[in-house]
């Protein structure tokens, strides 16, 4: 990045004021791990967000509030009943990058291969944006466009609210890659709720094999109310695949991206179902 100056605000208000004053010249910075992907050479002023105390993870009544500058390692090391994001965190790039990258930075600008939007979509996370007032946005809306477009000058993504996994619920996550530290070719996350041996609710999200991370509503509706099982999963997935556009990344074909998704969505459904079955009172 072509930084011509930097500022390290100590409070959220200072940070917002700085960004508001700088307008398009201001660039919020936290982990700085994605800068190598930004080719923008326009001069910017860096506004470091890491002194604002936004790095906490707190358990609340029905879930967790993850501060925007919590690092992936923070999420990896965090443990509490119903917390599942450690499963995503531990498969994220490499240890030094996990130590540096923040949840906010990982989702405010989405790349096709971004890991984090996928589980957040499946868990129906809520994104907290602090502007002149604080607003909360659902993950489907948040990821429907490049998320930074939601942010007006002076707005900051300050937290992610993630529901806890409760009794009768399961979470499945697969990141398909060549090596442990590779970019994803296909990321799948499934949240599934069982009631009376049927699927009461399910959310299926996918990324990397599609141009942007997304939910798979046709698969979800086909499975809602159904009895879970390998055949049901396979049928629903096969029938629902066409609703997405498939795009192979890093040298794989679009066909294969689609095929990988079909396999891994079933795998993630199976994993979520297995967990939900075991996740009893």
């Amino acid at each position: 990045m072509n930084y011509i100056d930097f500022t390290i605000p100590q409070t959220l208000t200072e940070a917002r004021d700085a960004l508001k004053a700088l307008g398009p010249e201001g660039m919020p910075v936290a982990g700085s791990t994605l800068h190598v992907f930004l080719r923008d050479e326009a001069p910017k002023v860096a506004v470091d967000l890491r002194q604002l105390g936004l790095n906490r993870i707190d358990a609340e009544a029905d879930g967790f509030v993850v501060g925007a500058t919590a690092t992936v390692t923070d999420m990896d090391e965090y443990a509490a009943p119903g917390w599942v994001l450690d499963r995503v965190a531990c498969e994220f790039v490499t240890q030094p990058i996990r130590n540096m990258a923040t949840i906010g930075g990982s989702i405010v600008r989405v790349f096709p291969w971004s890991d984090w939007p996928v589980p957040l979509l499946a868990l129906d996370a809520q994104l907290v944006i602090t502007g002149d007032d604080e607003r909360t946005m659902g993950s489907s809306e948040f990821f429907a466009v490049q998320p930074f477009h939601h942010l007006h000058p002076g707005d900051l993504l300050t937290a992610v609210q993630v529901p806890a996994l409760r009794t009768g619920e399961g979470f499945g996550y697969f990141k398909e890659r060549r090596t442990s530290t590779d970019f994803s070719r296909c990321t799948v996350a499934v949240w599934l709720q069982l009631a009376q041996h049927k699927i009461a609710a399910v959310r299926v999200a996918i990324g990397a094999a599609t141009p942007m991370p997304r939910r798979m509503p046709a698969i979800e509706s086909a499975l809602t109310g159904a009895r879970p099982g390998p055949d049901a999963f396979t049928q629903a997935v096969q029938a629902g695949l066409d609703e997405a556009r498939w795009k192979g990344l890093h040298g794989i074909s679009d066909d294969y991206a689609r095929h990988l998704a079909s396999v891994r969505i079933v795998d993630a459904l199976t994993a979520a179902w297995t967990e939900a079955k075991g996740n009893t009172e």
């Binding site: 190598v36 490499t94 090596t179 442990s180 530290t181 890093h250 040298g251």
Partner: peptide
């Protein structure tokens, strides 16, 4: 793909 993000070498995890 001329970088270590895209051109993959194994690490200790692999």
């Amino acid at each position: 793909n001329g970088n270590f993000g895209d051109y993959k070498l194994y690490t200790t995890s692999d």
